Simulated assay, not measured.
Amino acid sequence: MDINRDEIRKTAEQIRKDCICMSTRANFGHLAPALSSADIIATLYKGIMNYRPDNPQWPDRDSFILSKGHGCLALYSILSQVGYYKRDLLRDFASKCDTMLPGHPEIKLPGVEANTGSLGHGIPLAIGMALAAKMDDRKCRVFVLTGDGELEEGTNWEAAMIAAKHKLDNLVVIVDRNSLQLGDFTENISQLEPLEDKWRAFGWSTKNVNGHNIEELLPSLNSAPYETGRPTAVIAHTIKGKGLEIAENKIEWHHKVLTREQYESLKDNLGLEALE
């Protein structure tokens, strides 16, 4: 794959614009959790993963599971940008009961690998996919993006032990380490640190990266697995609400969205499209 770093940055910027637009239009959504993951998701789809939008079930594809399903605004944007469906569909986010773009991703939408949003399920699902790929001798990888608050779910750590036992070096877990969750900073709720040491103790190869720096993300994700026979955990340090100054690192913005008035006041500065 030819990797254009400027294209990845532009893609991440468009993800953020789409997230702001979709959530404002719907007056609904988890905006800040989507904004923190934009650079990670753009890097995966524009610089790392092998996939075919014209054949979503291609057996040898790399798979991506958004375990933090509430951040689906970013996933919907990237899937439209790489051609899984027309971008006009983004207007339907949370617009009706049977929308293709609900508040958490569902497999009825092309490009979505798993229904997610009930936290703690993404890594266990990915283990089954990675193990199946190993058994079928398919040279593909499974990527999971999990929230750091989500790591308080015990199923993740049970899954981490299983992945190490089966030597799933085709599995890459990326932790969106923005240090915030629904009601407070993560360390005020349940102590995660030393997070890298915990992953390593469970038998994983680990690395810390700046989750907004493409120059760090690209080699860190592309070089996985770091060790043969070990799954990979990439702890990507991010800012919740990145790119929207009034939302950055603010607890209350976990599930807040812009009002139409705020959107209009920021539209020209952020290069946002007009809302009809």
Rank of each mutant, 00 (worst) to 15 (best):
M1E: 13
M1S: 14
M1R: 14
N4C: 11
E7H: 11
T11F: 02
T11C: 14
E13V: 11
Q14H: 09
Q14E: 15
K17N: 07
K17W: 02
D18G: 02
D18P: 01
C19V: 10
C19W: 06
I20W: 04
I20L: 12
C21V: 11
M22A: 05
S23G: 13
S23F: 03
R25P: 00
N27P: 01
L31V: 09
P33H: 03
P33R: 07
A34F: 02
L35C: 11
S36V: 07
S37D: 06
S37F: 00
D39H: 05
L44W: 00
K46A: 11
K46Q: 15
Y51Q: 02
R52S: 13
R52E: 14
P53G: 04
P53I: 08
L66Q: 07
S67I: 07
C72F: 10
Y76N: 05
S77N: 06
S80D: 08
V82I: 14
Y84L: 11
Y85A: 08
R87W: 00
D88T: 09
L89I: 12
R91P: 00
S95T: 06
S95L: 01
K96W: 01
M100V: 00
L101S: 03
H104L: 03
K108G: 04
P110T: 02
E113M: 01
E113H: 03
T116P: 02
L119W: 06
G120D: 10
G120R: 00
H121D: 07
P124F: 03
P124Q: 02
P124L: 03
G128M: 10
M129K: 11
M129W: 00
K139E: 15
K139R: 09
R141T: 03
V142A: 01
V144W: 00
V144N: 01
L145H: 03
G149L: 00
E150C: 01
E150R: 00
E152A: 14
E153W: 00
E153I: 01
T155E: 09
T155Y: 01
A159D: 03
A159V: 04
M161E: 03
M161A: 11
I162R: 00
K165D: 12
H166W: 12
L168Q: 05
D169M: 07
Q181C: 06
G183V: 06
T186V: 13
E187I: 02
E187V: 04
Q191I: 14
E193D: 14
P194R: 05
K198V: 09
W199Q: 05
T206F: 06
K207A: 15
K207S: 13
G211S: 01
H212G: 07
N213Q: 05
I214L: 10
E215K: 06
L218H: 08
L218V: 14
S220T: 13
N222A: 15
N222E: 15
N222W: 08
A224W: 04
A224Q: 09
P225L: 10
Y226F: 15
T228H: 11
G229R: 04
G229D: 09
G229I: 08
G229M: 09
R230L: 14
A233P: 03
A233S: 15
H237S: 15
I239W: 04
K242H: 14
K242E: 13
G243W: 07
A247P: 04
K250L: 11
V257Y: 04
V257E: 05
L258W: 05
Y263N: 06
S265A: 13
L266E: 12
K267C: 06
D268Y: 06
L275F: 09
